[in-house]
Each structure stands twice: as C-alpha cells, then as structure tokens.
C-alpha cells in the first residue's frame, strides 16, 4: 500500500467516525423522546391523547386534540398564504424577469430565511395583531395572525426550491412549446409547471415542515388558548407551543405528557418528510 492510499484510508475512517457519532446523537435524542413520551400514552390510551379535547394537566387530563387541530389549522393557513405568493414570485423570477434581477433577488430571499423567528413574531405582535383586532375583531392574537406570519416565514423555502425546480426544466420544452404557437404564459402553465411539479411539491412540503415546527413566532401571535378555535379570529395553541409554554414548570406525568406531545409532532413531521422525499426522487427518475 502506498503512502497516499494509506492516507486515503485514514481520511475515510475519520469521516466515518464523525458521521457515525453525528447520526448516533440524533438517534439517541429520538430514542429519548420516545422513551419519555410513550409510556404515558400507553397508560392513558392513545385515544385519550389523540382525541381528548381537554388539556388540564393538573387534573390528569391530557387531551391533545386542540393542539393537533391548532397545528394543522395554522400550518394549512400558512400554506394558503405562502404557496400562491411563493409560486407567483418564483414564476416571475424565473420566466418573466431579467436574469440579473433574479441573480440579485434570489440570495436576498434566501437571506430572509436567516432572520430569527423571534423577530418575525415581534413584528407580528406589534403590527399584525393590533391590525387584526381593530379591523376584524377578536383579540387579534389568532389563527389568522399565526397563519400570516408563518406564511411569510415559509416564503423563502417555497420560492427558492420552486425557482430551482423551474430552472431544472429543460429549455427545449419551452422552445418546443413556443414553436407550437404557445405564448410565454401558456408555456409556463401547460408545460413548465407540470414538468416542475414534483420539485415544487417537495418545496411546499418542506415549507410545511417549517411551519409546523415553528414555535417562537407562533407563541407570540397565536394567543395560545388550549381550545379548538371556533374561527380564524380565535386564539389557538399548537403542539410546539404547548411544549414550550409549559416545559418550565412541568413535572412527573405533566412532563411526560409534553414528551408525548413531542412524539406526536415527531410522527407528523416524519410523515411530511417521507412524502417530500418520495416526490422529489420521483422527479429525478423522470
């Protein structure tokens, strides 16, 4: 074996160790969450966790349904706001704007993803919440406020992945379509978007993952009442907020119930990620 080959093996070994330790830390965390969170679910029954509507930890009532519904509502609301806006921006930046503008704007948009969520939450609390309270009624702290803030927060993810997948559509498709007498917009609608569809969907699902996992900004604008919201102007509590709000003083079964909240969140996010992976590999095979 030459010296270079030996070197190579050493580097490989080193990298392998590092990779393994990183992965095992993640695995340990996951195991820990499940180890802490599942026993109480077995004790009280899954049904009472998933479908119970009352969250009174001091009275041993651990119904998570309001939070599950809350997370889903807020996430869905974020998508209703973020996806059309994000898609429209991506289409404009790839198909209808100058290359130079796109080159400047894309990094700026990606930078928005780096703004700490507490800042988004603060802006929401200062401007959005009073605006909703004054114009639409209710406390202002609401599903609507949380959805709007999250919708804006997922924009960078949705836009930048949509841009990448629209760019990945070969120019020959566009030429072919335009040579057949299609306009640019018809070409985008009928050829480019369908061809980029799975990438765009993967981006939307990643944005969804971001929305469902976001905590700080949501706590600041959502009101956090542990009830199923009756309207989009009512306050709402999400799964992540539930953990963050109560972890400081929870003990014993209450503490376990918060871990159970984490388990449910974990499962929901796993499902979303799997869907994202499946759709994006399907895109590559095409």
């Amino acid at each position: 074996m030459t010296r270079l080959e030996k070197n190579d093996r050493l580097v490989r070994l080193g990298l392998l160790m590092i990779a393994l330790s990183a992965i095992s830390v993640l695995a340990i965390i996951t195991l820990f969450i499940f180890e802490q969170g599942t026993p109480i679910m077995f004790r009280y029954g899954f049904k009472s966790f998933l479908l119970g509507q009352d969250w009174y930890p001091s009275e041993k009532s651990f119904g998570l349904l309001p939070m599950i519904v809350g997370s889903l509502m807020v996430t869905f609301g974020a998508l209703i706001i973020g996806v059309p806006l994000g898609l429209a921006s991506a289409i404009f930046l790839t198909e209808f704007s100058h290359r130079r503008l796109t080159r400047i704007l894309k990094p700026v948009i990606e930078l928005l993803a780096g703004i700490p969520s507490v800042v988004y939450g603060f802006i929401g609390l200062m401007f959005l919440v009073p605006f909703i309270r004054d114009n639409f009624g209710g406390p202002g702290l609401s599903v609507l406020a949380a959805s709007l803030i999250l919708g804006i927060m997922i924009l960078p993810t949705v836009i930048s992945i949509a841009i990448d997948s629209i760019r990945a559509v070969p120019d020959s498709y566009r030429e072919g379509s335009i040579a057949l007498g299609a306009t640019r917009w018809q070409t985008v609608r009928m050829v480019v978007l369908p061809a980029a569809r799975s990438g765009i969907i993967a981006g939307i699902i990643l944005g969804m993952g971001r929305a469902i996992g976001e905590t700080m900004a949501v706590i600041m604008v959502a009101g956090n009442a542990a009830d199923i919201p009756g309207s989009i102007l009512a306050p709402v509590r999400t799964l992540t907020s539930n953990i963050a709000l109560e972890m400081a003083y929870a003990s014993e079964e209450h503490r376990e119930a918060l871990f159970a909240t984490g388990v449910i969140l974990f499962i929901i996010i796993m499902i979303l990620n799997t869907i994202a992976n499946v759709t994006s590999t399907r895109q590559r095979k095409k």
Partner: peptide, 10 residues
C-alpha cells in the same frame, strides 16, 4: 418547427 433532439412535452 422540428428540433434536433425530439422533445415531446411531458
């Protein structure tokens, strides 16, 4: 117009 590489739309 027919191009060198056939590009059926997807």
């Amino acid at each position: 117009m027919v191009f060198a590489t056939p590009v059926p739309l997807p």
